[in-house]
Design a protein around this nucleic acid. Structure first.
Length: 484
RNA sequence: GCCCUCAUCGUCUAGAGGCCAAGGACGCCAGCCUUUCAAGCUGGAGAUCAGGGGUUCGAAUCCCCUUGGGGGCACCA
């Protein structure tokens, strides 16, 4: 699978710490990681923290946390761009000396005016080039005098730039529509464009895999590589992930950050599998992949071009598949923290793991996300149930019959030993005849008495896990609840 | 407004000229199983392959136009 050339492959995931990583970002990380692992290459984490204003406290930790949770381990980094400002400044200087960049002294207000005027004339908003023709010596003097400035790239005003993209093919941009982009901001920090190009070159990145939204700024990057005399890496612009409204996925689409998926109880291996299928498919049928299978199967050639809507119901299904695939012990282990978190405060912690394993076995195949385990099983943990007399009386029955059934069953099972589901069933089921009830009716009454709900795990398994004492207690409570 | 781009069931997708009167998955519906809910099994509805022109003996697949969607156009990334 790997040969000498491939072993050189170096890719990176380069998020900016301006918020918590959402699934779109993570999918990009996943593809980079898969590509690196498939080819035996290197996966690098780089933090693009050049926007001092939008920096968010804790974002870096949550990015790393999310990557670790999904098992996307990085080989180098995290590299912080804020530690490398000298590199970008030197690079900007180089370009100024080459006459390919210049200092611009235009104020934010003037830029604003220019844009407003262009908008009024329905022209594309772009820098009008006022400082482009300033005398470099004079400009240098003004900078030396302390006048604030930015460094702009002297974008060629004619010709065209072709971006070779592994997924899109060749994409041609006319240089006339390109802007004199800012390379270095007035605070001395580089913009994304400069830092990105300098770093990717410096770090020996061979393939840039990033979301499709970046393709518009790629011609600038190509020109920058050119201006520096560097060979650009290969580009692969990945199809975007959309919300249900088909717009770029964002906060307003509900749970989009990885952290939230974890809190809701999605299994990392399920999200991993699901995300891999957003914009990539192996064939016409395979949907379930282990991590290793994905690493072995992944290829850029099979990445699609069309944006994909994030299909929540399918994720739920897939999560359910992964949950059912767990051993009951593993499932209990995974469910435990969610139970501790979600069960009512009245339930004593810590929970007994052996008991949780027994409960877990009964709800496992009914669970899609771990955040619902407490709701599915709380009656196994709480002391008192809440239901009314009417809830107890099954369809076609009256209060008297219900009470009689409850008492009859209590009496019969009281002497059952050993307390096992099979024995309970073989004892109670025949009582339907004696009591003149259908199984549906009798079991329905018992179900409400024991669980306070109409949908629950199999009755006799529930009794077994509840234990004789609690079962009898609940039947007695139910009997006293019935209003004749 | 300008630039780029995409276009197969509601959604994720297979399809790289004939194997496609379009296959799989999720979801939906029905039946079976069954003490409920799930799970499982079986079956079903669901795409005139956005529309219109070409090219070709033959097009979902190639070309053009239209339409629609998405993205970009900051001293944000």
């Amino acid at each position: 699978m790997t040969n000498n050339t491939e072993a050189q492959i170096r890719v990176r995931f380069a998020p900016s710490p301006t918020g918590f990583p959402h699934v779109g970002n993570i999918r990009t990380a996943l593809f980079n990681w898969l590509f690196a692992r498939h080819h035996g290459g290197t996966f690098i984490l780089r933090i693009e923290d050049t926007d001092t204003a939008r920096r968010v406290e804790g974002a870096v930790e949550s990015i790393m946390d999310g990557l670790r949770w999904l098992g996307l381990d990085w080989d180098e980094g995290p590299v912080f761009q804020s530690d490398r400002l000298h590199l970008y400044r030197a690079a900007a200087e180089t370009l100024i000396h080459k006459g390919m960049a210049y200092h611009c002294f235009c104020t934010a207000e003037r830029l604003e005016q220019v844009r407003a005027e262009q908008a009024r004339q329905k022209l594309p908003p772009r820098y009008d080039g006022r400082c482009r023709t300033l005398d470099p010596a004079q400009a240098a003097q003004r900078v030396a005098d302390g006048e604030p400035s930015v460094v702009r790239f002297k974008t060629p005003i004619e010709g065209e730039t072709v971006v070779h993209d592994l997924i899109r093919g060749d994409v041609t941009f006319s240089n006339t529509i390109l802007n004199d982009y800012v390379l270095l901001k007035s605070d001395g920090y580089p913009t994304y464009h400069l830092a990105n190009v300098v770093d990717d070159h410096d770090m020996g990145i061979t393939h840039i895999m990033r979301a499709d939204e970046w393709i518009s700024s790629t011609p600038l990057h190509v020109m920058l590589y050119d201006a520096f005399g560097w060979r650009p890496p290969a580009f692969a612009h990945l199809p975007m992930i959309l919300g249900p409204d088909k717009a770029k996925l964002s906060k307003r689409h509900g749970a989009t950050t990885v952290t939230e998926y974890r809190e809701q109880g999605y299994l990392p291996e399920a999200l991993f599998n699901f995300l891999a299928l957003l914009g990539w498919a192996l064939d016409d049928k395979t949907e379930l992949f282990t991590r290793d299978e994905l690493v072995a199967a992944f290829s850029l050639e099979r990445v699609g071009k069309t944006a994909a809507v994030f299909n929540m119901p399918k994720l739920d299904w897939m999560n359910g598949v992964y949950i059912r695939g767990l051993t009951r012990e593993a499932f209990a282990q995974r469910a435990l923290p969610y139970l501790e978190r979600d069960l009512p405060a009245s339930v004593v912690r810590p929970l007994d793991l052996n008991y949780v394993v027994q409960v877990a076995a009964l709800i496992q195949e009914r669970t899609k996300v771990l955040s619902e385990v407490a709701g599915l099983s709380d009656f196994f943990f709480v002391d008192t149930l809440s239901y009314t007399s009417a809830d107890l009386v099954a369809k076609g029955m009256d209060a008297g019959g219900t009470l009689a059934a409850l008492q009859a069953v209590s009496q019969v099972i009281e002497i059952i030993e050993p307390w096992e589901a099979a024995t309970l069933e073989s004892t109670v089921r025949p009582m339907c005849d004696t009591l003149g009830l259908s199984a549906k009716q009798l079991f329905g009454v018992l179900r409400v008495a024991l669980t306070a709900r109409t949908a629950a795990p199999p009755l006799f398994d529930t009794m077994e896990v509840l234990g004789k004492a609690r079962t009898l207690k609940r039947l007695a409570d139910a009997a006293s609840t019935v209003k004749l």
